[in-house]
């Protein structure tokens, strides 16, 4: 890291209200995955994100929490440029991954999404068989070609997603025939089958029952060995359970970003404390 960047970085951090900049709170597995600096975003005239600066570390779970409408989902969608699909959106600032500015005109958003996968709030399996749901993208990306390779990959992805035992006998039934929780795990299997670096999860359990939710939370814990996970949740217990780092969003700003333990036991900001203790939100 050269001096200039480091300087800019510390400037960005000092502009935040959080007491301890997370960038310094390092340990062995704190390698940088995505670096966000001064990110601003507007929906038409409305500014939805204000000067967001955040570091996302590899092979960790980062949770984004905050009251609804605080911009956490919008922020998440900046990381793989899903906001491009909304015509009125305008972004400024740096989102850097692998030394490249994600918002740069030369960045191919298709390539970006190939490396930054996403799981959505509502399970959205394709209208294809369970097998095809998983095999489709790797095949398109030329990760696998022969039938045997495909089968192997599908099995591995479904195993990783903890779904294999439930579906191994009905791989050729439509993906929509599964229950909600199974559908969501199918979507996770689909996402990990392309072997991305990062998986974004946008409230992945909000449409699910408590048991499916627990399964998915366990899964996140396992998956972080292979992938960097960023998840949005409005369930604070969930953030406390699964996340290594937690960012608290409020009205389009990051109020506090800290390791989860600190965030929930000893938050540095009043707002975060009020939110976490349930005074509002």
């Amino acid at each position: 890291m050269n001096m200039q960047v480091a300087e800019r970085e510390s400037n960005a951090m000092s502009s935040q209200q959080s007491g301890q900049p997370v960038t310094r709170n390092d340990s062995a597995n704190h390698e940088l995955s995505i670096r966000v600096r001064d990110l601003n975003l507007w929906y038409g005239q409305n500014q939805a994100l204000k000067n967001i600066s955040l570091d996302i570390f590899q092979k960790n779970v980062t949770a984004l929490i905050g009251p609804s409408g605080c911009g956490k989902s919008t922020f998440l969608r900046c990381l793989n440029r899903m906001n491009d699909l909304i015509p009125s959106v305008r972004t400024e600032g740096l989102v850097e991954m692998d030394g490249r500015d994600v918002n740069d005109a030369r960045m191919d958003e298709v390539a970006l999404r190939r490396r930054v996968g996403m799981v959505f709030q509502k399970p959205n399996p394709f209208p294809k068989s369970i097998f095809e749901n998983v095999a489709y993208a790797p095949r398109m990306h030329d990760l696998v070609s022969r039938k045997a390779e495909q089968e192997e990959l599908v099995e591995q992805a479904l195993r990783d997603a903890g779904l294999w035992n439930e579906v191994k006998d009905k791989l050729h039934q439509p993906g929509t025939s599964l229950s909600g929780g199974q559908q969501q795990r199918l979507c996770i299997a689909r996402a990990i089958a392309v072997k991305p670096d990062v998986i974004l999860m946008d409230e992945p359990t909000s449409a699910l029952d408590p048991i499916s939710t627990a399964t998915i939370e366990d899964l996140m814990d396992k998956l972080k060995k292979q992938f960097t996970i960023v998840t949005v949740t409005h369930n604070m217990q969930q953030a406390a359970r699964v996340a290594d780092y937690t960012a608290f969003f409020h009205l389009g700003e990051v109020i506090e970003y800290n390791d989860t333990k600190t965030m929930f036991s000893n938050p540095h900001t009043k707002k975060a404390e009020d939110y976490i203790t349930g005074r509002y939100g």
Binding site: D98, R100, M107, D108, V110, A111, L112, R114, R115, M140, H141, D142, K195, D197
Partner: peptide
């Protein structure tokens, strides 16, 4: 295992076309 952006972009050319 993971590919860099440049590798992926190169693969993508044909698909974009």
């Amino acid at each position: 295992m993971n590919h860099s952006f440049d590798e992926i972009s190169a693969q993508l050319k044909k698909r974009h076309r």
